[in-house]
Nucleic acid binder design. Structure first.
Lengths: 331, 331
DNA sequence: CTGATTTTTGAAACCGATTACAAAATACTT
DNA sequence: AAGTATTTTGTAATCGGTTTCAAAAATCAG
């Protein structure tokens, strides 16, 4: 069933059917006639024809490391709902932190000529190897925004939480509640988020002129429960009274380690996380943490659509969001 | 950059470029020349042109109630990975249990002329209102499979866990461990899954000739923690020694209710769930439950692709999967 | 009723690819 | 070297829509 079939059945030309479909100028009686045929035949136009001629699409690509990682489903939901509202729809890609996977997915999205891509891969590998591909995509008129992780040297809008402010504030909160020996555990150092979160912690410590042992600051391994457990055991046995963790998963690992060592939380040691994943409020003790504001996803979609529809011009921006401290049982 | 631009730069015709792209018969030296131009220009062909001419696409639609509901992210991941392997990609739609949303999404997927649709909406409303749309989609040559919920009267493959067997087995397990007064709490009755899960429970009870009070069997409200909490309080105060729940969320609600009433699990009362969502192993006490086998998602993709590629013919099938009992702390 | 103006319509080109068909180039036989 | 078979290539039609342009129909003014 094509537009020509409809045209023939209605006794008009395909141009007229197209006008009916697009609210073009058509005599009311003709319009009604054509509409009746469309309804009767359950005709829904083929986007392949439309997009080919209009040289644009209503598709948005969303790239995440792993949809089963906590936090991402909510991001996907927010993006999905915003896009649907605006008449766009979602192509999803998981990279699993693999550059080759991300490359495949980006190329697929370019082949599909999506209108825009939201890159939400804030974990995992260094992806400078993909910069040429990003540039190629941009040259094809596809708009990109980055969420969660900064990358230098690409003309792309970037939205992130203010990492430094987040750890600075939560460390200050620990200091205010009387903690004196505060450790820090995070994932591997060569991510910009790691550096920034470390910087916030250091700033708070240094401002209060607290001496701190470099041994109690760990920037190694991955942002996982297992890694938190490993380093948690190591640091807890050295006698700290608080640990600031680089994300919630690491914090959960540290809590597990404390349980094993029979250390009470928050009495003996306070633990804080980062991200406020859904699990954070469900575990025992529930986790005091820094919330990634959900406005990042909303604002990201908004900016992307504005770029696509030409309502936002000018140089790409880097937008920082205020972190929010969520106080629960663990600190 | 189109195929004509490449052709011009390489001094050949568009047909030759197309042959290079599709491994058609081309003189090796020409092929190399064209390849060089393609590489140099970072040319990636536009799927709009390809799909329009080939009258098919490599898109698969996946419909779920809500990606943030536990269990769905894993399904999405499994489907995503399987499809990527086969050269397809994923368009995602959330329905939130709303018929109108589901209609929008189905129409979008029809407009996009996806090759197939995986419908994973096993919660929520009765959707017979959408049957004409489903039929229209099928008439357009788009293959559909249903996952998790049965629907009668549509020529579509259906994959579900054997609900009856699941509750039958877990109720028997409770009986074997010495429980005598076993209650049952599930969501609203007019879902086929509700009926089946209830049937399994009843079969086990009746076989053992245990008398049971109709008051201890609740089929009302939604499949949520809140609903479980509400009915949990009601039934627990009447003195049962076990409760079979229609899904894990309800079971978690019942556990909360037990905590409030200071009833010990599993000493005083055993609680079981259904689905084995990720949370089930993380809460305290961890939840004894029936696992929805992950093969449902895998097999579903496999069948869908086979249907699309014509490797599977014949009448649609209804495939039941063996439930697995996962024994943890709560029973 | 005629001519000018406006509204409505259709024919045909076009978007970016693929492919049937025929022509051109090359390889093989004798 | 000429004739045949095979490989390689290009022209043009096609997929399902939209849109430009001009023609046809309807409306209006006098």
């Amino acid at each position: 069933m094509t537009i020509y079939d409809i045209a023939k059945r209605a006794g008009v030309s395909s141009a007229t059917v197209s006008r009916v479909l697009n609210n073009g100028p058509v005599k009311p009686s003709t319009k009604e006639l054509v509409m009746r045929v469309i309804k009767k035949e359950n005709y829904i136009p083929d986007s392949r024809g439309i997009y080919l001629k209009k040289l644009q699409t209503k598709r948005i690509g969303l790239i995440v490391p792993d949809i089963t990682n906590p936090g991402y489903p909510l991001t996907v939901k927010i993006v999905h709902d915003f896009l649907k509202e605006k008449g766009y729809h979602l192509i999803l890609g998981n990279t699993y932190g693999e550059i080759s996977e991300e490359k495949d997915i980006l190329e697929m999205m370019l082949r599909e000529r999506v209108a825009g891509i939201i890159v939400g891969t804030c974990e995992g590998e260094d992806d400078t190897a993909l910069y040429p591909l990003f540039r190629n995509i941009i040259n094809n008129g596809i708009k990109i925004i980055f969420m969660g992780k900064k990358r230098d040297g690409l003309p792309v809008d970037i939205l992130t939480v203010d990492n430094t402010k987040g750890t600075y504030r939560i460390t200050n909160y620990l200091l205010k509640t009387g903690r004196k020996k505060i450790g820090f555990i995070t994932g591997s150092k060569n991510l910009r988020a790691t550096e920034e979160r470390l910087a916030g912690y250091r700033k708070a410590i240094i401002e209060k002129r607290i001496s701190f042992h470099i041994d109690n600051v760990i920037c190694e391994g991955t942002y996982t429960i297992e890694n938190g457990e490993r380093w948690g055991e190591s640091i807890l046995s050295k006698g700290v009274d608080a640990i600031v963790c680089g994300n919630d998963l690491i914090a959960i690992g540290v809590i597990k380690a404390a349980e094993k060592l029979n250390i009470k939380i928050p009495k003996d040691v306070a633990i804080t996380g980062f991200d406020d994943i859904p699990l954070a409020s469900l575990i025992k003790p529930s986790l005091t943490t820094v919330r990634q504001p959900r406005e990042i996803a909303e604002k990201g979609c908004e900016i992307l659509i504005e770029r696509i529809e030409g309502k936002r011009q000018g140089a790409p921006e880097e937008i920082l969001f205020e972190p929010e401290i969520i106080i629960r049982e663990s600190a």
